[in-house]
């Protein structure tokens, strides 16, 4: 599955599949094979335990019989309680429970994998890299040119078009986007008033960005305003009617007349 393209002039690039999506790593320096293995492993380890697509995973077992959650492994319980804490923090807009009652932690599992992969890179001495797992982005440092890693954001109305962008900076090293077309059922429509079709959140860490993007997508403007009081984030939320909610960082410069 792995397509290692490491070894370009002054930079390393790695592309592999994990958690049903594509992971891309760009580093300003070539990455050793052992480090590449650990990055891939960070995703594989969490996928093995938490995937609902694998019959033999702990998550699938608990999905079939929820009472097993009381005897779940330490990592599983950690993840579950983390998800429940997010449920409380978002007023119920983020939830670890699928509409059919199955516990689905995929909303934070991918973020945790990205975080773990980032830790692997930092531990190996890599300070300038950009990691993208299916549209959720975590960066460290800057590009080889010295410029900030810049994240383009896709237009929900035309997913083949780039809409806007965000230059990463300290406190905004993670960018996650949730959309109504997203696979999986962990996005709940709390408020009928929520017309958001795509929500992007930039935060200091990928779990916060990912969870809050999902929560705002489901909970609409009320959730947007709730979480902005508690978290230091930039938000870009797009509605089907053409209106958006955007933090000042996404605003076009004032037209000169």
């Amino acid at each position: 599955m792995e397509r290692d393209e490491t070894g370009g002039p002054g930079r390393g690039q790695l592309v592999f599949e994990a958690m049903g999506t594509v992971v891309t790593l760009v580093s300003t320096e070539p990455v050793l094979a052992s480090t590449v293995g650990a990055v891939v492993g960070a995703f594989a380890e969490l996928e093995e335990r938490f995937s609902l697509h694998r019959e033999d995973s702990e998550a699938s077992a608990i999905g079939r019989d929820r009472s097993l959650i009381r005897t779940a492994s330490e990592p599983y319980r950690d993840m579950y309680w983390d998800a429940v804490a997010w449920l409380a923090a978002t007023g119920g807009a983020f939830t670890p429970h699928r509409p059919d009652g199955v516990v689905d932690l995929s909303g934070i599992v991918k973020a945790r994998a990205i975080e773990a992969a980032g830790d692997v890179l930092v531990a190996a001495g890599h300070l300038d890299w950009c990691l993208n797992a299916g549209g959720d982005v975590l960066v460290s440092g800057v590009q080889a040119s010295g410029e900030a890693w810049t994240v383009g954001i896709v237009d929900a109305d035309d997913r083949g078009r780039l809409w806007t962008q965000l230059a990463t900076r300290p406190g905004r090293l993670a960018v996650a986007t949730s959309g109504v077309q997203e696979r999986g059922e962990h996005v709940w429509r709390l408020a009928s008033a929520s017309t958001f079709t795509q929500v992007t959140v930039a935060a200091a860490d990928i779990e916060t960005a990912d969870v809050l993007a999902t929560a705002i997508l489901g909970g609409g403007v009320d959730t947007l305003q709730l979480v902005q009081r508690g978290y230091d984030i930039d938000v870009l939320a797009q509605s089907s009617d053409g209106t958006v909610w955007a933090s000042p960082v996404f605003l076009a410069p004032a037209p000169t007349t």
Partner: peptide, 23 residues
Amino acid sequence: AIPLMKSEVLAADSAKVSTISGA
């Protein structure tokens, strides 16, 4: 975040984009 029209949002400059975020 404040409510805006879509056209008021900064346009992307693909030359500067290093990666892409989308659902």
